[in-house]
Write a protein that binds this DNA or RNA. Structure first.
Length: 447
RNA sequence: CGGAGCGUAGCGCAGUCUGGUAGCGCAUCUGCUUUGGGAGCAGAGGGCCGCAGGUUCGAAUCCUGCCGCUCCGACCA
């Protein structure tokens, strides 16, 4: 993609409303634009990141056996009256009336709707288990939106719903999502830690928040260092096998957010050298809630004993749009973003240091073509900007690799490859640089 | 929802107290010089000063109402 054709409105100065670094950088890097309190337009660069995140989430959901679908953003209040949540939800729910004066709402979540969909098509335990998910915009009319996309009112969320005949089946579904989440966040370059969460009136141990560690995270977290060393389940994990030992290994270590932290327990269970007090961001939440919706909404299945009973359900959310912010919180420096390859808007920033110079233009055109043909995503800065401005802009948008080509280097037969992650620079021939980039991008994208 | 602020050019801000032809920096455009880490000089364009009333000879400035946004707190993926 040529930068001269792209829409990348970068800002030199930090807008005053942005308080945290991810919000500041998303605005400065031209990724988002606020359209209303807590509501953002995703500009081309931000949109690409969002789609990368979404695709990784999708691939791991599919791998775990969940099936994708799409439910509408606008829902009828009728459904929510069935579950009793229409009254209970409060002002966070955006309520709308249609032209016939019917009560509608912009969905903050989809438990009611999926329950309605499920009960329309499933009658027997023989049809279970099922896991359905969609990736859709949600709206919660937060009292106080802030931190950019980290806590907007409109947000993109992946939500999966599981349906099982009994609690053992529900636990198996829960475990699948647990593993899928570990893999999902790891693929984005994030260290996620599952932390025991409040299960409310249902009780039990089947609720975890997935926290991503980031120095500037919004909540304090405490955990055992050994959690960070656990191997993330591989792509070959058998999701139909027994995942319980794997889950047990993860949940055997102490991990708690500030609200649930018990310092005495922390010190008793974790060796002094292994105690980590860090900051984190909640990016996922998995939750088993049994018959909470299936019972009032009459989503019944017939068991082997011939008796009807409400289906066992769970729901599993990932904050897709929030992850874009969380990734910046985890990967940035003074100059800007530092995207992991898997979620970078482009893999390589190609910098033409002297646009208009025939030799430089030709070398850049060759590099651009060769990389794109190899499946490497290139943002080619073919503008007439000065070198300093180009460098600063590339650093700001944070593509993982920069390929810098100018007349001075070409004269010596060299171009420069810069790695945004560690700042390492290599001066090599153009062909060597292209090989290096293709190889490094490919290996970074290995699942 | 309680408390505190702010709305002036695309962005960052001054001007408001004390009413008198709307400013600064960056960005944008033109020309010349520059060209390997956000260039220099010269010139130019761009504003219902959030909206609506009111006071006044005269309102960005004073008064009233409304709208929007931000921050702190309580709440959340």
């Amino acid at each position: 993609m040529r930068l001269s054709r792209y829409y990348l409105p970068v800002l030199k100065e930090t807008p005053s409303e942005a308080q945290i670094v991810s919000h500041q950088l998303m605005l400065r890097a031209g990724m988002i634009r606020q359209e209303s309190a807590g509501i953002y337009a995703w500009l081309p660069l931000g949109f690409r990141v969002l789609k990368k995140i979404e695709q990784i989430v999708r691939e791991e959901q599919d791998r775990a056996g969940a099936v994708e679908m799409l439910m509408p953003t606008i829902q009828s209040a009728e459904l929510w009256r069935e579950s009793g949540r229409y009254e209970a939800y409060g002002k966070e729910m955006l309520r709308i009336k249609d032209r016939a004066d019917r009560d509608m709402l912009f969905g903050p979540t989809n438990e009611e709707m999926i329950t309605e969909i499920f009960r329309a098509g499933v009658r027997s335990y023989k049809d279970l288990p099922k896991m359905l998910y969609h990736i859709q915009w949600k709206f919660r009319d937060e009292v106080r939106p802030r931190f950019g996309v980290m806590r907007g009112r409109e947000f993109l969320m992946k939500d999966t719903y599981s349906f099982d005949a009994d609690s053992a089946g529900a636990r198996a579904s829960y475990n699948k999502m647990f593993v899928a989440y570990l893999r999902t966040f790891a693929r984005m370059g994030l260290t996620s830690i599952p932390m025991r969460a409040d299960t409310g009136p249902i009780g039990g141990d089947l609720s975890h928040e997935f926290i991503v560690l980031a120095d500037t995270g919004e909540s304090a977290v405490f955990c055992d260092r050994k959690l960070l060393d656990l191997e993330v389940p591989g792509a070959g994990t058998d999701f139909d096998g027994d995942l319980q030992p794997l889950i047990d290994r993860y949940t055997s270590f102490y991990a708690a957010t500030e609200e649930k932290h018990d310092n005495a327990e922390f010190e008793a269970r974790v060796a002094k050298g292994d105690r980590i007090a860090a900051r984190g961001i909640e990016v996922g939440h998995i939750f088993y809630f049994g018959e909470k919706y299936s019972a009032p909404m009459r989503a019944m299945i017939t068991g082997a004993d011939g008796k009807d009973r409400p289906v066992e359900m769970g729901s599993y959310g990932v904050g897709v749009s929030r992850l874009a912010g969380a990734l910046i919180e985890a990967y940035h420096d003074e100059a800007g973003c530092k995207w992991p390859v898997a979620v970078a808007p482009f893999h390589v920033g190609l910098v033409n240091l002297k646009q208009g110079d025939p030799g430089t233009d030709a070398a850049c055109a060759k590099a651009n073509r060769a990389l794109e043909e190899a499946g490497v995503e290139v943002l080619y800065d073919d503008t007439a900007s000065r070198p300093g401005e180009k460098f600063a802009r590339m650093d700001l948008i944070g593509l993982p690799f920069q390929l810098i080509i100018g007349p001075r280097g070409l004269e010596a037969g060299k171009v420069e490859v810069k790695r945004r992650a560690d700042g390492r620079k290599d001066e090599v021939s153009l062909d060597a640089a292209l090989d290096m980039l293709k190889r490094d991008v490919r290996s970074a994208l290995k699942v």
